[in-house]
Amino acid sequence: MRVRTSIAAAAVLAAGLTLTACQNDDKAAGGDGTGSTASSTASARDGGATPSATAKGTGSGAPSATGSDGSAKGGDGTIAACTARTTKAAFVAAAQHATRSKPATGTVKITNTSAKPCTIVGATTLVAKDDQGKSSPIETDNSAAGTDAVDVAPGATATASVGYTDLNFEGTESARQTCRVQASKVEIALPKDVGRTVKVTDGKGSAAIFNVCGKDVKFGAFRA
């Protein structure tokens, strides 16, 4: 009986020593369930990226492109060209007559009527035909003035000046305002787009005449 009791006591003691050793090993290796979490936390604190990190506001890790006014652009950062379908065109004749040293100044207006921004890039053309067909049409574009891209926000208007002479300085006093081209309408064509005919108006929107003496018509660059 004493022999059996001694053997049993020795077995219990050995089991206790083994359990203590295993617990010590688990603590050293994070076996209390905190080892892997602590390692991940330390990695993130030290600048390591976590597997689920993506760019803010997207699900793909790449930020979406936007325009300077916050409008959404295409994936390549471009926006659609302004066309006759997405804009309204207008031509305003000069409010003051030309002088020998200073031309009269009209204005081409392009208003974005769509819900998205568009851009004008390239040469815009302007054609004015004499109402009576007594002279050849005046044709010009703004390629010499500069045709860099101009973005037009929804509802906004881009403008370009048109310099011309509306008086005949070589004629008699009574014929000073009789020019070879007197047009009540002009045709405006945006770059790589169809032309559309618009009425010539004054600054108040009333009907006016694009009265052009001479061939020197200067179409300026657009400004938003």
Rank of each mutant, 00 (worst) to 15 (best):
R2M: 05
S6V: 08
A8L: 12
A10I: 01
V12Q: 14
A14Y: 05
A14I: 15
A15L: 14
A15C: 06
G16F: 01
L17Q: 11
T18Q: 14
Q23H: 14
D25Q: 10
D25W: 04
D26P: 02
K27Q: 13
K27R: 07
A28E: 15
A29N: 09
G30D: 05
G31I: 03
G31Y: 10
G35V: 06
A38H: 08
S39M: 10
S43T: 07
R45P: 03
G48H: 06
A49N: 11
P51W: 12
A53W: 13
T54F: 13
A55R: 07
G57F: 11
T58F: 10
P63C: 01
P63D: 06
T66Q: 06
G67P: 06
S68Q: 13
D69L: 06
S71V: 04
S71C: 08
A72E: 10
G75W: 00
G75H: 00
G77E: 15
I79S: 10
C82P: 08
C82Y: 04
R85A: 14
K88M: 13
H97D: 07
A98K: 03
T99H: 04
R100P: 04
R100E: 14
R100A: 12
S101V: 03
P103C: 08
A104T: 03
G106M: 09
T107N: 06
V108R: 04
K109H: 01
T111H: 05
K116H: 10
P117N: 12
C118T: 08
I120E: 03
V121C: 00
G122C: 06
A123V: 07
A123L: 02
A128H: 03
D130N: 08
G133W: 07
K134L: 14
I138S: 01
E139G: 01
D141T: 01
N142A: 06
A144D: 12
G146C: 10
G146W: 12
T147G: 02
A149G: 15
A149H: 12
V150H: 02
D151H: 11
A153T: 13
A160M: 01
S161E: 03
V162L: 00
T165A: 02
D166N: 15
F169Q: 09
E170L: 15
G171L: 09
S174Q: 12
S174P: 01
A175I: 00
R176E: 13
Q177T: 05
T178Q: 02
C179Y: 00
A183P: 01
V186W: 06
E187P: 01
I188Q: 03
A189P: 00
P191N: 02
K192F: 04
K192V: 13
K192D: 12
R196H: 09
K199L: 07
V200A: 11
G203Q: 08
G205A: 08
G205N: 09
G205I: 08
S206W: 05
A207C: 05
C213A: 11
G214F: 02
G214D: 07
K215T: 10
D216A: 11
F219A: 09
A224C: 03
